[in-house]
């Protein structure tokens, strides 16, 4: 590999309190990327203030500052950069925060496989180097209210997917004033609604009659990549949350019960995001999912896709 100009190489920041991890990562990636390292959250933020990075990879458990906090700062300082969490252990709160606050691209567990990590980093760099329009790149929290309201007025349809009739009614009442809301009790019903209406946001319950929603969502995104998914659950689970990040790139994971203002705000943000994604389809790369690694899940995913296609073509 000919590395003529180091400046032109994508710049990656690794954050970990264990220097040996940083050494190992540097050895793997220095040939392809401009690798910078930080051994603490504070050092990482300093680096983020000094330079722009395409990808930030952080450990979660660190003294002083957690990885989520580092990634949240990175999102604010450099919205264009992609964020990856690389951690040895994750509790539920960490994974939920990784989705909602860090908006991470991937959640990678230690010990990692070099090849997989290379692939992940490659796709992150690819997404990061895509041109980003300023309004989409800006952290959504920073968007002015007027813009949000404009977004909400675009009347993006919302699909509520929940087996519980009471919850469906409650969500419809909460969201129905500002936008069309379609309710479905099962995935099949929901797919039918998706085919016949313009729907940009899905508000779905994680436990949908025993079906694995993360697979279904991944499959739906393969079909329509600009769909924005909000998952509601009363039975949060770290492993499922990681799957939702890596294979579904869900926008938010909310734990029931959800307060009405939070839900409305989140759906507004999601609508805004759908509008942006619809305008700039190339941005979808930033939310590209990884294909399920296990053959069985892959088969299931493909089966689900087939089913979706069949429903849509009907």
């Amino acid at each position: 590999m000919n590395i003529a100009n180091p400046i032109s190489k994508p710049r990656v920041l690794f954050v970990d309190d264990e220097p040996r991890v940083l050494v190992a990562l540097k050895v793997i990636f220095r040939d392809h990327y401009d690798v910078q390292t930080a051994t603490s959250g504070a050092a990482a933020i300093e680096a983020l203030q000094a330079q722009t990075f395409d990808v930030v990879v952080s450990d979660q458990r660190m003294p002083g500052m957690t990885g989520i906090e580092v990634l949240r700062s990175a999102k604010q300082l450099q919205p264009k950069s992609m964020r990856i969490l690389l951690t040895g252990y994750s509790d539920l709160n960490a994974t939920v925060d990784a989705i909602n606050e860090g908006e991470v691209f991937r959640f990678v567990t230690k010990p990692w496989s070099n090849d997989k990590l290379r692939a992940t980093l490659a796709s992150a760099v690819e997404a990061a180097t895509t041109d980003v329009p300023p309004e989409a790149a800006a952290p959504i929290e920073a968007l002015p209210d007027a813009q949000l309201r404009e977004g909400s007025q675009s009347a993006v349809g919302v699909l509520v997917l929940d087996p519980d009739a009471e919850t469906r009614t409650a969500l419809k009442n909460t969201l129905g004033r500002e936008r069309p809301v379609y309710c479905a009790a099962s995935l099949d019903e929901g797919l039918g609604l998706l085919a016949s209406h313009r729907i940009g946001v899905i508000v779905a319950e994680l436990m949908l009659e025993g079906e694995d929603l993360s697979l279904a969502l991944g499959a739906l995104r393969l079909h329509d990549p600009s769909l924005v998914a909000i998952v509601l659950t009363s039975q949060a689970d770290a492993q499922r949350a990681i799957t939702l990040i890596n294979q579904s790139q869900v926008y938010r994971l909310l734990r029931k019960p959800v307060s009405d203002p939070l839900l409305r705000g989140t759906v507004n943000l999601a609508s805004q995001r759908f509008t942006t994604l619809s305008k700039h389809p190339e941005l979808v790369r930033r939310n590209e999912t990884e294909m399920p690694a296990e053959p069985a899940a892959r088969t299931a995913s493909i089966g689900m896709l087939a089913r979706i296609k069949r429903l849509l073509l009907r």
Partner: peptide, 24 residues
């Protein structure tokens, strides 16, 4: 388990990665 997993996974992470790197 949470503590042990984190404590084991971190050194295991770089050890395994390094072995792979060396083999490569």
């Amino acid at each position: 388990v949470a503590g042990v997993a984190h404590e084991i996974n971190t050194p295991l992470g770089y050890a395994q990665s390094n072995v792979q790197t060396v083999r490569e």
